[in-house]
Design a protein around this nucleic acid. Structure first.
Lengths: 238, 238
DNA sequence: CCCTTAATAGTCAGTACGACTATAAAGAGG
DNA sequence: CCTCTTTATAGTCGTACTGACTATTAAGGG
């Protein structure tokens, strides 16, 4: 790195977030409506400028707290996705964006955020054309999360502290968009030590219609060996 | 993203590279010796400032060409690793670094690079304390490449256009640091459609001592389904 | 009281995998 | 020229895992 080259051009650096959650069995993403040009009135991923004293991670967590109104975002899953730096991705100036993915269990109502724009949970499939290159960022986030489900215990990040195996399976089915065989999924999950552990208490009391399910907690494991691969569905180009 | 917040602070953006290759069965990384403060005389990952008209990817590829002296870097594997943005990672100013990994088959002698510093291939294990947070970047790159070998056909990027299965296996063994069973490795690789394809010509003529091996080319596949998992070695914390 | 719903248990054949053994084809050294 | 070493390649075998099922259990709804 050559330092005397500096002052060539300053970059603005932002941290943008693809905040995903599952509402009523449908994958949702948190979007904000832009209150100003460019792309005024368009929907975009929440985010903001990285401040002088914070890292991109810190900025992302701060923005996440502001946009969702969550009081405690310290335990939430936040992961760097990748950085987008094409010169023309912003019509106004040179902006480099470090994108993050965040996974929420049962999300709160986003209360407009601290900024003028309003925030809303939007079904992933109907997240129309977004501002800037946010369509691509969102697609990258979806693909990344889908891939992570195969190799990590990340799925529990979509679930509340205590959950049933049915709910965990729904996470996989929702993100992957495929149906899974229930007994096989159960066998696989329980055979992975540290993925989930049963809650000593009793079964679920919620207004479910069928047999009550036992509740589980996230275990200590983070990686899935062997992985839980999504159905080949032959279509996936190798 | 709020634009009127801009002008708060300019960031310098650099693209740094963890260029890996295998020399004599040992994983090597390309390092440059810094010619100026800070960290003058220390070794560091090659890299440089992103110019106004280029993306981080473009800058990384340009730096790669400059440092390695390769005339054609268009076909080489280059992949974004992650971005490092801690406020204090550079003692001089606020620098955000987009890190990349690059994989080379048979590398050329690095001829000092275009910048004053000299460049050299250094065994990964002896890549001592590096400047800035480059130790961490290098470790992240190693871990990422190791993980990619499990799920992608990336290993061929370490090999010349035509290679033997023994050479391909050596890539896995070198990066993972573990020995693999040769017949099983061979069975697995050949059972994955599109991973490698035999070269119609004859076997290798090189001065090998044993039975000549058939030559293979990289196939069209990019992902490995099912994955080629590294030996559990029980030690890996799940 | 029966039907529906959902959770959980269990079966079974095909496949993948790890650990081996065996054979083939080259060079090295006497 | 023969043998030993080296490396590639072929094949075996028992275990574990997977996908596709069927069966049973425990709730709620009409």
């Amino acid at each position: 790195m050559e330092y005397d080259k500096y002052a060539h051009e300053p970059f603005a650096v932002t941290a943008d977030l693809a905040v995903l959650t599952i509402l009523d069995g449908v994958l949702h993403v948190l979007l904000v409506e832009r209150g100003q040009e460019p792309y005024q009135g368009h929907w975009a991923l929440p985010g903001g400028f990285v401040q002088p004293d914070e890292s991109a991670e810190t900025a992302a967590r701060r923005e996440l707290a502001e946009e969702t109104g969550l009081s405690d975002v310290s335990g939430l899953h936040l992961e760097q996705l990748r950085t987008y730096s094409e010169p023309d991705r912003d019509p106004r100036m040179r902006v480099v964006t470090v994108a993050f993915t965040a996974l929420l269990p049962h999300p709160p109502e986003p209360h407009g955020g601290s900024d003028a724009a309003q925030a809303r949970w939007v079904p992933y499939d109907t997240a129309g054309p977004l501002a800037f290159d946010h369509d691509r960022i969102l697609a990258d986030a979806h693909e990344r999360v889908g891939a992570q489900l195969e190799h990590t215990c990340l799925a529990t990040a979509f679930c509340p502290p205590e959950f049933t195996l049915g709910e965990l399976q729904q996470v996989y089915e929702t993100v992957w968009g495929t149906a899974l065989d229930r007994p096989n999924f159960r066998r696989k999950v329980l055979a992975t030590p540290g993925f989930v552990e049963p809650v000593p208490g009793a079964a679920r009391l919620t207004g479910g219609r069928g047999k009550p399910a036992t509740l589980y907690r996230a275990g200590a494991a983070t990686t899935l060996r062997p992985p839980l691969l999504r159905p080949t569905s032959e279509g996936r180009p190798a």
